[in-house]
Design a protein around this nucleic acid. Structure first.
Lengths: 142, 142, 142, 142
DNA sequence: GTGGTCTAGACCACC
DNA sequence: GTGGTCTAGACCACG
């Protein structure tokens, strides 16, 4: 798991970590049951305080993305959201609107935008297929 | 000019405004010399403090993106060449990927996701039509 | 809103605050839209660090119990859980099992236990009726 | 002796064990001189480190609740008068209220809640029957 | 050794 | 003034 932080983006560091873990999980680079980096070494590597990483992991746990077992570490959870359909829709719409508005600002017409979306869905699916082959699940958590 | 703010993204509101103006300028959607929305009505529309918009515009001015003419308004600065299509694609892909990853995490299948995207395109286009009527940007000042 | 902390119970302080806010919300002592105590004064009153209260409020927000508007304060959310039925069941079962096992340890027979449960449900309902009359919702948030 | 641990309550596991032993002793469910479960099998059953159980027992001994006879096991100390019914009710009510409040917060209506309670009573009674067979507590040692 | 809690105090974004 | 982020460093619970 590789992280890259941008300290000038204005986006809080802990949220950058959250986003990158979620992206890794979505792409299949991180598989259910797999261990995340330990908090202390990761904080050191990213030159960030231990609490900042801890906060990111706490947020991920509260979103149901990871499970943390005190004394053992943090592990990617089996992927299913505990949220109601409505709540999930609402969350997704926020992100979609962000992209749609950006498209509008960049004067990318709707058709082209939809093509681009289909493209990215395909890219993600391809990455998942790629990650599905090589590895086996290792350290089981619960 | 249409804006969409995400109050829970962690990104400061004023930076979201800055980014969206810059994106519009980059694509040519906002042309050199064209007027930006007035601070007060925009703040009202976005349900945000006037200081927040003012801060965004100040930031844009200090970056040389816009020029402020006291008593008249803010206008896009002259030296803005619209980005090439590829550069715009790249910017857009970042936002799309964010939404795609979120969809995966929320267990929303691609078909449903695409439906939702079409939905939001429609909703925001509709919203844009509404906003285009009452306030018409007046052209070239400086 | 009155809090009472037990520093020797072993239960983290921030969780004690979370529990007490939830209890106040359930009893109707705290109504949707009503403001919670500000973080800083509350921390001072409870002789606890500001971050500890902030953590409690963050947890409450992530559970959907409150909404926080930066710069304005924290407000009790309209009461509806965004979780799927299954997830809610699972959470509830944890608490019920705690009580059931306690009953077993205290040698309270099932029938008596059920009576007691009905009793407490009634007490809570009564409290809600009591709180429903006197006040009116005041400071609206969103 | 049956235990039920809640790993997410925030209360340390060893204190949960302590509380549950004390509750059993308070009600007379565990009688003076009666043996507690051996550390090793109990740790296995609860999927907890042996040190955690050992710490709980150490704590209980230092509180004078149990006596440890090296090589033989741990036994409830003599001076334990079962609590009166009212005192037990009061202890139980704390746990019941916690569950009742949680039910309210999760929007689980009273009827459904009571069904769930009956359910758990049944499940835990069943579990208890299972556990009562393999290991039979041997009586009075010291 | 792991993660969790708490403190003390700094700075930032927003009203 | 509000809440949010981050740091530095201490102590605890658990494996």
């Amino acid at each position: 798991m590789i992280f890259s932080l941008n300290f000038k983006s204005g986006l809080p560091v802990y949220l950058q970590v959250v986003d990158q873990v979620k992206a890794a999980a979505a792409s299949g680079a991180l598989k259910p049951g797999e261990a995340l980096p330990f908090i202390r070494p990761l904080a050191e590597e990213l030159r960030v305080n231990r609490n900042t990483i801890a906060k990111a992991y706490t947020e991920l746990e509260s979103q149901g993305v990871i499970e943390t077992i005190p004394g053992k570490g943090c592990f990617l959870a089996a992927n299913h959201s505990p949220l109601k359909k409505d709540a999930r829709r609402k969350l997704l719409i926020r992100d979609i609107d962000q992209a749609v508005v950006q498209a509008h600002h960049l004067q990318v017409p709707p058709d082209e935008f939809l093509d681009l979306v289909r493209d990215r869905l395909e890219v993600l699916a391809e990455r998942q297929r790629h990650h599905d082959q090589p590895r086996e699940p290792q350290s089981t958590p619960a």
